[in-house]
Measured scan of single mutants.
Amino acid sequence: SAVVMEEGSPGEVPVLVEPPGLEDVEAALGMDRRTDAYSRSSSVSSQEEKSLHAEELVGRGIPIERVVSSEGGRPSVDLSFQPSQPLSKSSSSPELQTLQDILGDPGDKADVGRLSPEVKARSQSGTLDGESAAWSASGEDSRGQPEGPLPSSSPRSPSGLRPRGYTISDSAPSRRGKRVERDALKSRATASNAEKVPGINPSFVFLQLYHSPFFGDESNKPILLPNESQSFERSVQLLDQIPSYDTHKIAVLYVGEGQSNSELAILSNEHGSYRYTEFLTGLGRLIELKDCQPDKVYLGGLDVCGEDGQFTYCWHDDIMQAVFHIATLMPTKDVDKHRCDKKRHLGNDFVSIVYNDSGEDFKLGTIKGQFNFVHVIVTPLDYECNLVSLQCRKDMEGLVDTSVAKIVSDRNLPFVARQMALHANMASQVHHSRSNPTDIYPSKWIARLRHIKRLRQRICEEAAYSNPSLPLVHPPSHSKAPAQTPAEPTPGYEVGQRKRLISSVEDFTEFV
């Protein structure tokens, strides 16, 4: 048969007729292969192709491409040299491709048809291009793949890379869960390890502090508590009631339409708007009261037996805890006409967050109470924005700035309102402590230090009264110190430094 060459192609190359033996071998191979691939376009007849790359030819070592076609129900084999250009295909004639002069020997084609199974398996396991790669995943090629499931790999992101949580363990979102698992493993320790309690022994800490320079003076030496005195035992138990972190309780009120001037209507609300609910979820963490331990979680007086509701929101960081007394989460009882059960919590909070959804101005004093010092007013606006402002009593104007209003988005509203309420509550605590000038409020841990110092002074006084020969370590507060001759004046800087060093040991009130 003659071949018409394309323009620009090399000279004529004689194409030899395939021997009958080659056709029989390739026909047997075509019957084993699956003929249901995917359909081509209507211009080209339905056909199945599979590209198999052999590394070497037997005796020649030339890479070839073998295409199996099922045109007219008769499979045909096409061998081509890759750099050459194939002729145009037609549905009426068999596929013809040019070969190099080196394939002119018909014996070479017979060798190609009689490829060993080793070469076929190696060509099938190679990388296939384009559409033949999808075909190689079918059941027909499963014989050339190794048996057994593939090893499982770690989760992959859409980009093909490992997620960040699997790369950096410290930033993994499941870090707290692993800590819980470690605690569970520790709890399952053997009885021999049960006595080993991690941490620092208080006796060891005391020993280090006792021999430090801070205890060089007799006034700073630790003293032993009497065991037989019940009054001192009660004082030590009272110390446990003062937490070592700051605590805040903040009221949250929802004002519906037409309720801006009605205290009873505001306290009777059992739910609010959708934006109000989203605002609550951002204030803190939802907790169930019956599962809380009052000595570990500050509840601000809420009952854990269901008297004040089942849930509330709280927030904490390293040095403070805040609980929100939310009116809509507290039960509304029919027998309580004046809502006294709610007001006994909300009316005693220094700061209230008022979500004013009424469309009218909310005035300070609508919720009557002796300790309502500051109101954080949240007014929802259009386009997911809110107006946040402050209202306070006249005696609080020096501590709280009420002249600045803020426009905040719904997303950042819980954070801004919480921070403003916490700052206002700190100012309210300082303002409330002014009624007792001898006990200015600095912080909870300073209050613990003052309680310890008062307890020490009482013990020293009782020891001096029981044994008059012992001198008083600290003179009583009601006694007057003996007159001392004025010492020589020293520079102001040295006096300030000495006073600062003494105050650092005794108390921190002056620095606050």
Rank of each mutant, 00 (worst) to 15 (best):
D439V: 07
I223Q: 07
I377H: 05
L224F: 13
I353R: 00
P414F: 00
K368V: 07
E462W: 08
F415E: 04
D318W: 05
T490S: 11
G306Q: 12
L267S: 04
H338E: 15
T485N: 13
I250E: 01
K296A: 06
N269C: 02
G492I: 12
T247V: 08
S466A: 09
S443Y: 07
G301E: 10
K406G: 15
Q293V: 11
G369M: 11
N227R: 09
R275Q: 00
V404H: 08
P226F: 10
E510M: 09
L299E: 15
I287V: 11
A464K: 10
F371W: 12
N412D: 02
K221I: 15
A421C: 02
H375Y: 15
I250N: 01
L470W: 14
D361I: 06
D246T: 08
S477I: 08
D217H: 11
R450V: 04
D361E: 12
P226I: 13
E397R: 05
P222S: 11
L329A: 05
P489C: 10
T438E: 14
F508D: 15
P243Y: 06
D357E: 07
S358R: 01
P380A: 02
L455Y: 12
N412M: 05
L422S: 01
V473W: 11
Q419F: 05
N220G: 14
K406W: 13
K221R: 11
S433L: 07
Q484W: 10
T328F: 01
P222R: 06
M426T: 03
C460N: 10
Q419G: 04
N269W: 00
P486S: 12
I266K: 03
N412T: 06
N436E: 14
A322F: 08
Q259S: 02
D395C: 12
R500F: 09
N220S: 15
N386T: 04
L449G: 13
A421R: 00
C460Y: 10
R234E: 15
D317L: 00
H316Y: 11
R450C: 06
A427I: 07
E494F: 07
V495F: 13
E510N: 10
D341L: 15
I266Y: 04
N425G: 14
I440M: 09
V236N: 07
S504P: 15
Y465R: 12
R393M: 13
V304G: 13
S235L: 13
A424V: 04
P331H: 08
T277E: 08
E494M: 08
P437E: 11
A327N: 04
I367P: 03
E257V: 07
A327T: 04
E233H: 10
Y313K: 05
R448A: 09
I250L: 04
E488Q: 07
H271L: 08
A427M: 11
Q293W: 07
G300A: 13
Y276W: 03
D357W: 00
C340E: 15
V408K: 00
Y276M: 00
K444T: 06
D291G: 13
S231N: 09
H338K: 11
Y441H: 15
E278R: 11
L299Y: 15
V323R: 08
P243K: 06
L289W: 15
P226H: 12
L224W: 10
L267D: 03
G306R: 11
V354F: 01
E488R: 12
K444D: 15
C392H: 04
T490L: 10
G365S: 13
V297G: 12
I367N: 03
I319F: 13
L329D: 05
L413E: 00
K337Y: 13
H478R: 09
S235I: 14
E263H: 03
A421P: 00
S235A: 15
A481S: 10
Q457F: 06
K363V: 09
F373H: 11
N269H: 02
N356G: 00
P243H: 05
D246M: 06
E233P: 04
S268M: 07
N261A: 11
T509L: 06
A322I: 15
V430T: 04
A463D: 12
V236G: 07
P226L: 14
L238Q: 15
M426D: 01
Q457A: 11
L239I: 09
H451F: 10
D401Y: 04
I459K: 06
V473T: 12
L286H: 07
H478E: 15
Y355S: 00
A447V: 07
G300C: 12
V400L: 11
V374T: 03
E488I: 09
V354I: 08
T312L: 10
S260G: 09
V335C: 12
Q241L: 07
S268Q: 12
D336V: 06
D410W: 00
L413W: 00
D382P: 09
E228M: 10
V354A: 01
E270A: 07
P476S: 15
V404W: 11
L387T: 04
R434Y: 08
I502M: 14
E278H: 06
P491V: 09
P482M: 11
N261H: 07
G347M: 15
H325M: 05
